[in-house]
Amino acid sequence: MKDYLYSDYLGLYVTVEFEGNTIKSLEMTSKKPGFKPTGSKVIRSLAAYFKNGKGDFSGYELGLEGMTPFQRSVLQTIFKIPAGETMTYAEVAEAAGKPGAARAVGNVMACNPIPLILPCHRVVASNGLGGFTGGLEVKRKLLKLEGAL
């Protein structure tokens, strides 16, 4: 099943694919989806997040099928980063059990299937923001919403 909301804060549509309580993917786009929103539980959680930057996604299962053990470890690590806080790529690599693998962490961030909920925007370079699939302006807005900037 798919559902979406429009985030006035980001100026983007946020589309989520889920099955029951398992979130499979999330996409942010300027293009309106070609289906009607249903107001699902996960969309209500995202709407709450966009109000105060403190959404709670702990009650959801995350569809990480096809991910390697390292990718899963990285994504599970970033899932634990609280809103309003950041970690560097190197810190995530170390927490995921692979010190020195900061570049590999960046590669995992680039293929994160569930951004926002698996908050890759909270992972920053040691010398600045680093990259973000949704663009640096979206990353800045998310970090500002959460009080990290």
Rank of each mutant, 00 (worst) to 15 (best):
E85H: 10
M87D: 02
G34M: 07
G106A: 05
V108H: 01
T86P: 01
Y60E: 06
A110Y: 11
A93C: 02
F57M: 08
L64E: 06
N107W: 06
R44K: 14
R103W: 07
N21L: 08
A104V: 02
S73H: 08
R44C: 04
K54S: 09
A95S: 04
L118G: 04
Y60W: 15
L46C: 04
Y49I: 02
E61G: 13
G34C: 07
V105W: 01
V42N: 01
S45D: 15
L26E: 00
E85L: 06
P69M: 10
Q71Y: 08
T68F: 05
N52F: 08
A83H: 14
C111M: 13
G63F: 13
L62V: 10
G39V: 05
A96S: 05
S45T: 11
E65T: 14
A47T: 09
I23L: 15
I81N: 03
A47E: 15
V74D: 03
A101E: 07
K36F: 09
F35A: 09
P69Y: 07
A90S: 15
G20M: 06
T29V: 08
E91H: 04
Q71I: 05
P113F: 03
K24R: 15
D56L: 11
I43H: 03
M109L: 15
I23R: 01
Y60Q: 11
N21P: 02
T88S: 13
I78M: 13
S58R: 12
A110S: 15
K41R: 14
G53P: 03
M67W: 05
L62M: 14
P33N: 08
V92N: 00
E27D: 08
A102R: 02
